[in-house]
């Protein structure tokens, strides 16, 4: 019977383990700093990304056509509901436009160029996602050539879904807000209450209830269930005012001091085909 590893093989495997540990340490350090991966790796990712389009385009076509059929079934019911909301929306939109133009004029008078709420949008399509769920990563089809930078926030529909963690030439990776990663960057968020705002941080995701957790709040704010949560624009490259979700539960810790919230995300965090990358106009830190 041959041994599992002969001596020579054992040494090779040992060396492989050491190299693999080194590579892991290197990748984690690149991931946690502001750096992009080395040129070779970016180039490799670009090549794979281009080849992946051959597989991803037909596959995503199938996905969207299935989606279209299942949407058709719900259409009638949705239509009646949406009609009711539409009148209200038109009024809100006009009001928003008026306020926006007024805001612009006032900013001009104050000689304010850009504030935390100014941002531009970049649309991108999802190419693929990582098969394993350890890193909740998506790959999207825009990269540094389209102006995407590391740490930009990413939205789908009306809600925040994650941030850019790696940028290559023609594709980039998005880490979803649902990640379990201990070293992930967290979003600074604020709750809009009837008497002002309360600042906090999105601290994690509860898979069992599919709700986001928010903690580290200044607890004197009177937060109610149903209040809106949005990004606060403090720190990083996130502008203020990106919609995250609504408060569903308010919890105090055992001593009644620290406050934590549960938030129902605005979008289904498992199902989207097109994302919007947000670029803040004011420079980040």
């Amino acid at each position: 019977m041959q041994k599992f590893f002969s001596n020579r093989k054992l040494i090779i495997v040992m060396i492989a383990i050491i190299i693999s540990m080194g590579l892991m340490a290197f990748s984690v350090s690149v991931r946690n700093s502001e750096k992009t991966p080395p040129l070779v790796q970016r180039f490799g990712n670009d090549v794979v990304g281009v080849v992946d389009r051959v597989v991803a385009l037909p596959a995503n076509g199938v996905k969207s056509s299935f989606g279209a059929v299942s949407n058709l079934i719900n259409t009638y019911e949705e239509n009646t509901k949406l009609k009711a909301q539409l009148d209200d929306l038109a009024q809100t939109k006009t009001r928003a436009q008026t306020l926006q133009s007024e805001n612009k004029e006032l900013k001009k008078q104050l000689k304010l160029d850009k504030t935390l709420t100014d941002y531009s949008q970049l649309n991108a399509a999802v190419l693929t996602r990582s098969p394993a769920n350890w890193q909740n990563n998506l790959v999207i089809n825009k990269g540094s050539l389209a102006g995407i930078k590391k740490n930009m926030p990413v939205m789908a529909g009306s809600g925040l879904i994650g941030r850019i963690v790696e940028v290559n030439g023609t594709n980039s990776k998005v880490e979803l807000i649902t990640t379990d990663n201990q070293s992930a960057n967290r979003f600074a968020a604020e709750v809009i209450t009837s008497d002002g705002t309360a600042n906090g941080i999105i601290t994690g995701y509860d898979q069992a209830t599919s709700e986001l957790k928010m903690g580290q709040l200044n607890s004197d704010a009177k937060i109610k269930v149903g209040d809106t949560v949005q990004t606060s624009g403090l720190g990083g490259l996130t502008p203020r005012g990106l919609y995250i979700g609504k408060v569903t539960k308010i919890k105090h810790d055992d001593y009644g001091l620290a406050l934590s919230l549960e938030i129902k995300p605005a979008v289904d965090l498992d199902d989207f085909t097109v994302v919007t990358v947000i670029e803040r106009q004011i420079a980040g830190d």
């Binding site: 693999s20 590579l23 794979v48």
Partner: peptide
């Protein structure tokens, strides 16, 4: 290596494991 780089960005996980499972396969298959 491509799998790591393209999907997760953490190098060294599947780079090491794919050859290892082939060795395991070879060892069991005999």
């Amino acid at each position: 290596l491509f799998y790591d780089s393209f999907y997760t960005g953490i190098l060294g996980v599947y780079t090491f494991l794919f050859p290892l499972i082939l060795l395991l396969t070879r060892w069991i298959a005999q």
